[in-house]
Design a protein around this nucleic acid. Structure first.
Lengths: 149, 149
DNA sequence: CTGTGTGCAAACTCTTTGCATAAGT
DNA sequence: ACTTATGCAAAGAGTTTGCACACAG
């Protein structure tokens, strides 16, 4: 069984702001109010899939004053630091996943919701070689769902 | 082995405008100048991957006067008619593929180029069931490539 | 002729950026 | 203090829409 690193750098189950700050510092990010608050929202509750907009709304709802621009900046900084993974689904909307391990997704076209597929279940056979001069950086699998008629 | 329908409705290898018009009519689309010209660009030369912008530029270069808005409309109409398939890669850019059969893609992050992966080579094992009330509409596999250092 | 398609420009969505202010160390 | 992050508003990319004119049947 493969552990899903929904909690970066072995963050405890119910992380305190100080725990979160430590992880950020180790990632080379200054633990500012906003970053700590967003990191706490993201990493305190298991695997999550957010867009900039949903995370922004959630932060405001929890009375964490943060601008949408900062949410975008932060999501990208976390992604570069390896704390998040970006998932390309469609259109302009960028999804971010707190589970950075190798895994795949369901995407419900109707609700726009993204769900992890249990790591072990899918296996890909017969993956061809990368073309000359390139290497495979990652394999994305997206299983698209529609409502049953 | 599975035939790749890069030529919708069994379009001949070197289709005339009349051939293309027929395919459009059968798809319920009135064969206007622009649609015929775009369809000819798309379907006359094997499998292709275009964005609205690349197709627009190509049309203009071949002296086919068409607006970008019409290219967008046309690409979506063709997609709804089953003549094209849309591929979600990332960001705001929408890719369209003339190969509508079940197949997967390489995506070169560096060049932004999309390539088909030979149909038979990849096999996915252990695909989980769709969640309650939904059906799998399609499985997208995108193999991301980076330049070898 | 009649109705559908096209072109243009404006609107829209999501995302990024520049610069003054605020906060972290 | 010194440096880096934040907030705002404006700009940017890609896509879509509304409406007058043009074309296919």
């Amino acid at each position: 069984m493969h552990r899903s690193p929904s909690v970066p750098n072995r963050l405890p189950a119910a992380p305190t702001p100080a725990d979160v700050a430590k992880v950020l510092r180790e990632a080379g990010l200054r633990p500012t109010r906003q970053r700590v608050a967003l990191a706490h929202l993201l990493f305190a509750g298991g695997d999550r899939h957010v867009t900039a907009e949903t995370l922004h709304e959630e932060a405001l709802a929890r009375k964490v004053p943060v601008s949408l621009a900062t949410v975008y900046n932060t999501l990208h900084q976390f992604t570069e630091a390896g704390l998040l993974r970006e998932v390309a689904v469609e259109g302009a909307k960028a999804y971010f996943d707190t589970n950075t391990s190798n895994h795949y997704h369901f995407f419900c076209e109707h609700s726009g919701k993204l769900m992890d597929i249990a790591t072990g279940s899918i296996r890909i056979e017969g993956l061809p070689e990368a073309p000359e001069g390139t290497t495979i950086s990652r394999v994305d699998v997206l299983v698209r769902l529609v409502d049953k008629r």
